[in-house]
Design a protein around this nucleic acid. Structure first.
Lengths: 234, 234
DNA sequence: CGATTGTCTTTCGTATACAAAAGCGGCGGG
DNA sequence: CCCGCCGCTTTTGTATACGAAAGACAATCG
């Protein structure tokens, strides 16, 4: 028994409620459960092969995260992202990510910067290999890491939620402007390493603003797209 | 029976889980459940006179809100606010509240401004009546209203959580710098009414920065206070 | 005397069961 | 033909029950 197994019922078997929460988020973000879809507890329990209790607990946190809205006595439905969601989210990101970059520049140690460098290198390799999905994944990971390096847990918590919602509204248009954005990332990490808070903050703002513009452009393109599968109203 | 009765809890009987959540938050913020306190589901259920299920659901969202931490298989304990919590929280507030003020200046209609004016008037009356608790309450309410007027739901959501935590760490030192801060509020509302985003943002930043300084001062004073009832470590 | 191991209690994790409220359809009356 | 009322069905809200994992304590062995 010296070897801790982790397959089905391993040592730290993630609680069912968390598994359900992840599955639920994934299903919503990927569009399997479209906005407006009714989420019957019984149905979810059947879908995930569990009882109603884990489902209920998952629904509660999904509700606080803004993925579902639960009517008083009527059950839960998948939330409909507001038309201004992209603007709203990036407006917040433009404020908090520069702050995170500033703090990271002030507080990140050598190991922290080394971690960022490592991610940049992995991203370069993934770019060379044309693995866009991996690049996008590293994109989020780098941002999150910088948030963590800021040492302000609120920033990490807020940004994590924001990122999930960005993924949600852009679940269709997958590969964003990945390659382009990594040049800005390098400049940002340089600034953090140099320990210059002002420069780091400026770089982060520039980067997020660029991402915001790209997101809005993509959103407008998606607007006229014919495949309007869901969205009950407007 | 056409009249919906409301004896104990009226027509839209708030779900037990929400009542428990509110009671739990209140108990934590007020210090009835000190940091580090173990929160047995059974005990909470007994305390609130309900079953374990509503307690569990309330614990989940309290966990996402950062008031409790739940160890994998060991139950939940009241979170211990980090020593840098005040700095962290106000650092975020200094970024998002100016943004909210800017957006409010751009978007708030006449009715919105009128609502703010009304709150200022109530605050003035409460100040005259030396009702400090009411003033503090209106303080939070005004800020929240401005957040709402920004039209960005993320800002409201983030700030609400931040405010609760500010109340928590300052549960002892009650009456803040209430009277002083209302002069700044008036200037801020003036700026919003004038529709000048830059000015509104500047006023909000000044105001939050002042609040931050006051908070830090108060925190340092409380540091040397003899009545160290809780805080198991450091 | 100390370390180890076995058991034992505590507490969570999950499932099932029951009651109440809201929605929906049919039915009757105007 | 339309409107209101009354039953049923669905779904949530809440409680209870059982199984499992982790920590604690003590007894035993080296």
């Amino acid at each position: 028994m010296s070897d801790p197994r982790m397959p089905t019922l391993g040592a730290q078997h993630l609680p069912l409620r968390d598994q359900v929460l992840i599955a639920l988020r994934t299903a919503i973000i990927s569009g399997d459960y479209p906005p407006g879809q009714r989420l019957t507890e019984d149905r979810l329990a059947a879908d995930f092969g569990v009882s109603r209790n884990p489902v209920r607990e998952a629904l509660r946190v999904a509700e606080t995260e803004g993925f579902v809205v639960s009517l008083p006595r009527r059950g839960a439905v998948v939330a409909s992202p507001s038309p201004t969601a992209i603007s709203d989210i990036f407006a917040v990101r433009e404020r908090i990510e520069p702050l995170a970059a500033r703090l990271a520049a002030e507080r990140a140690g050598e190991e922290g910067v080394a971690g960022l460098r490592d991610m940049l290198e992995q991203a370069r390799a993934a770019t060379d290999a044309d693995d866009l999905a991996r690049v996008a994944e590293l994109n989020s990971a780098l941002h999150l890491r910088i948030l963590d390096l800021s040492g302000n847990p609120w920033l990490t918590s807020i940004a994590t939620s924001l990122y999930l919602h960005v993924q949600w509204v852009f679940r269709l248009g997958a590969a964003q402007r990945a390659p382009h954005s990594w040049r800005e990332h390098i400049v940002l990490v340089d600034a953090i390493e140099s320990g210059d808070p002002d420069e780091a903050e400026r770089c982060a703002l520039t980067h997020v603003a660029a991402a915001s513009r790209a997101a809005h452009t993509q959103a407008e393109e998606g607007e006229s797209e014919p495949g309007g599968d869901q969205r009950p109203h407007a």
